[in-house]
Simulated scan of single mutants.
Amino acid sequence: MNKIKLSTGTTLAYVEAGNGRPIVVLHGFCGSHSYWDEVLPLLAVHGRVIAPDLRGHGESTAGEGVYAMEKLAEDLAALMDELELPQIDLIGHSLGGYIALAFAEKYPERLRTIGLAHSTAYPDTEQAKENRLKAASAIRQDGIVPFVDGLVPKLFTAEHRSNLSEQLGKAKAIGYGTSVDGAAGCALGMRDRRDRVDVLERLEVPILLLAGELDEVIPPDKRFPVSKDNVTKITLEGVAHMGMMENPQAFAANVGEFLERNRGI
């Protein structure tokens, strides 16, 4: 585990594997770099894979307030500066995808490719915004454990809740490591995020949109907001919102194929 104090004021923890072309993978809400444990060695054959803990998650430091997607994108840019990475391939899972889009909007020249995994460019619905407020309040009132216990099972398919009980338990344990400030701040930041379909429409770099067939978090009508020559759309069969843990081999194979296909760009 490595840690770096960034110019944005936070200290980010990260792990890495492999060498060569830098590939950054961003985990989802109440996750950490450990979401990628099984995927990391599979992707490392394609380059130097860097998996940070987002601000307020895992071993990265936290602070009070709203964690705007733009602020988290600035953390990523600062991490790249510290590691002397002018450009990256960027894969974001769920919340990580929202951050990736904010990064793409502000720093498009620093991307080689971008991938959204179990994520969307659309903003929250009004009902979802209300739920984010309730989540932030519940986290601050009751702590992180009961919130994670309620959240994580919804991220796996019904079948995987039983036959992947070890992975589900691991996802819960990872979630328990999220700070109260980090979880509440990200809930509010996700609530405030804007519609970034236009960002995808403008981007000229290769784009991967990877969805879970049975995802109950990202509905089918929100998974593939754009269709262009530079967009690759993939649906992972039999998984919900946690493809990197539910079927890491298929997840890594599809991401790896996308990266290799666009290696010369």
Rank of each mutant, 00 (worst) to 15 (best):
21 R>T: 13
227 S>H: 12
12 L>M: 13
176 Y>M: 07
105 E>N: 14
6 L>D: 05
183 A>H: 01
195 D>I: 13
138 A>C: 02
80 M>Q: 09
160 H>M: 08
204 E>H: 09
61 T>N: 03
174 I>R: 03
76 L>K: 01
227 S>L: 12
136 A>P: 00
68 A>T: 15
264 G>M: 15
15 V>F: 04
245 M>E: 11
138 A>H: 10
186 C>S: 09
212 G>S: 09
23 I>A: 03
168 L>Q: 13
56 G>K: 03
18 G>M: 13
98 Y>I: 08
6 L>M: 08
44 A>P: 02
13 A>K: 04
253 A>T: 04
134 K>V: 14
202 R>G: 12
74 E>R: 04
160 H>S: 09
146 P>F: 02
94 S>E: 00
210 L>W: 02
91 I>Q: 01
111 L>E: 06
189 G>D: 12
247 N>R: 05
18 G>E: 13
215 D>H: 14
141 Q>F: 06
219 P>N: 13
114 I>Q: 12
174 I>L: 11
67 Y>R: 05
54 L>Q: 13
27 H>T: 11
91 I>N: 02
92 G>T: 03
64 E>G: 01
148 V>P: 00
59 E>H: 06
242 M>N: 10
44 A>C: 05
228 K>M: 07
118 H>W: 06
250 A>H: 08
214 L>D: 00
74 E>A: 14
13 A>N: 07
19 N>S: 10
121 A>N: 08
95 L>R: 05
70 E>D: 15
246 E>H: 11
231 V>N: 09
265 I>T: 07
48 R>W: 08
103 F>G: 09
127 Q>D: 15
30 C>W: 02
258 F>D: 14
178 T>R: 01
114 I>P: 03
261 R>N: 14
127 Q>T: 14
69 M>L: 15
116 L>Q: 05
39 V>A: 14
124 D>Y: 14
91 I>W: 01
264 G>T: 14
221 D>G: 05
79 L>M: 07
93 H>S: 06
234 I>N: 01
156 F>T: 01
184 A>N: 02
132 R>V: 11
59 E>T: 00
12 L>Q: 07
70 E>L: 08
63 G>K: 12
122 Y>A: 09
165 S>H: 05
75 D>Q: 11
237 E>P: 00
176 Y>N: 03
52 P>G: 02
50 I>K: 08
10 T>D: 07
171 A>E: 02
76 L>N: 04
208 L>S: 14
75 D>T: 12
176 Y>P: 00
195 D>Q: 10
65 G>E: 06
52 P>C: 06
24 V>F: 13
158 A>P: 00
11 T>I: 11
66 V>N: 02
222 K>R: 15
23 I>M: 12
178 T>V: 09
226 V>C: 11
110 R>E: 10
150 G>K: 10
92 G>K: 01
120 T>Y: 02
110 R>C: 09
2 N>R: 13
88 I>V: 15
22 P>L: 13
83 L>F: 10
208 L>W: 04
117 A>I: 07
153 P>W: 12
129 K>Y: 03
182 G>S: 04
116 L>P: 01
42 L>T: 00
132 R>E: 12
104 A>D: 04
232 T>F: 06
85 L>E: 04
138 A>T: 10
145 V>C: 09
252 A>L: 07
164 L>Q: 15
207 I>R: 04
104 A>K: 15
120 T>G: 07
170 K>C: 05
135 A>S: 15
